[in-house]
Design a protein around this nucleic acid. Structure first.
Lengths: 219, 219
DNA sequence: GTCTATACTTGGATAGAC
DNA sequence: GTCTATCCAAGTATAGAC
């Protein structure tokens, strides 16, 4: 779902639009939206500023494209996990599977977030102060993703009030998304953080550290 | 500690520098740093752009002042909690007090964050992309605050590895600080969120919801 | 598809009058 | 302390040649 027009050929033959999109995502992440000039951006892809308007109608449209791709990737990752649990069969011990479902979605969220860092990070770092037209354009996709998590938490934490679930969800989002600003990229690191977050979220830090994530004592 | 030259008189007699500082903090929060022009800012305090240079040597200096004030307020809040536990006496049941110490600091962090939203939010929303001179100027204060939390977690979670404590700390920071972007201001709301975060962080969501924060079932 | 040239706007900062 | 006037730099966007 939420298909993104994927590049067909090898990286060298990426379309002009694709190359601009990637460079923009990276620059927006590193320097911010307003701080990034179309001149610098054009230089990144070996073009001049004016030429970019053949591919994008405005700078805002460029940001919208970056954010839409980022959120589509997050949605896709969520749905993959859903599909995975669907084929696992409906007659599982649904009670004890709650923490595992949550853990799977946490891992998927963090992997998608970091694997596509350039496109996804914008939602964390620059959505809030983006031009209104940009926010409005991207909002439907974002709302859809949040709705999926809202539904997930309702299933997994049925005894909590709606207010509590909302705060828990936003707290969890905060913990995960802030990692964009400090976590080293790399699958191993991301997965370790994901396991820690999932374990901490469900069991808390008051109980014993789990066996596989740390030996006995400090290492 | 980390004393901030506080205004002396009533709000109407705030010095020009103070009024500029508050207006700047608010505008930076709402619109972002680069998006805020000195002309708009001057209009907020009933001045013209050129006049601001009597009070601040540059726009960067203005942002530095905002961020320093914000972080000083956070440090002060942390130290107040430390002092509170100090007078409570050293011969307490230190083992069982770990979760209470943590909860007190979480509440203090969230209160300080939201009570001084305009000044503190900048550290969440615009520190990352701030000009390098700004980041460098404010970094010592930030490092000091983080060091306090690092030490706190070392005392409270002695069995965890340093790596895990770092990730837990940054995850907790993420959960708390992201609330700047969604939590309604207001002491009641902030305190409820603080209790939820503290409880969730220590005990997890897998266990029963605590008695005082929710009745039985959904309400 | 990409270039050059340029129109148009806005912003940070300075100088000097009051 | 605040104003007006102004300089200078930089950015988005457009037009038209190639």
């Amino acid at each position: 779902m939420a298909a993104v027009s994927a590049p067909s050929g090898p990286p060298e033959t990426l379309s002009g639009r694709e190359r601009i999109l990637s460079a923009a995502a990276q620059r927006f992440l590193d320097a911010g939206y307003v701080e990034t000039s179309l001149r610098d951006l054009a230089a990144d892809v070996g073009m001049k500023a004016g030429s970019m308007y053949y591919h994008f109608e405005s700078k805002d449209a460029l940001l919208i494209a970056v954010l839409e791709r980022g959120m589509s990737l997050m949605v896709d990752a969520f749905e993959e996990v859903v599909d995975g649990f669907a084929v696992a069969g409906v007659d599982n011990a649904i009670e004890s599977a709650a923490d595992q479902r949550l853990a799977a979605h946490i891992t998927a969220h963090l992997r998608a977030l970091h694997d596509n860092r350039a496109f996804t990070a914008g939602h964390v770092t620059l959505f809030r102060t983006a031009p209104q037209v940009v926010r409005e354009a991207v909002l439907p996709l974002r709302d859809g993703y949040e709705a999926r998590w809202t539904a997930l938490l309702a299933e997994v934490l049925p005894d909590r009030s709606i207010d509590e679930r909302t705060m828990l969800r936003l707290g969890l989002f905060g913990a995960m998304n802030a990692s964009i600003e400090w976590l080293d990229t790399g699958r191993g690191t991301v997965d370790r953080f994901a396991r820690l977050v999932a374990d901490q979220f469900w069991r808390g830090v008051g109980s014993e550290p789990s066996e596989e994530s740390s030996g006995k004592g400090k290492r």
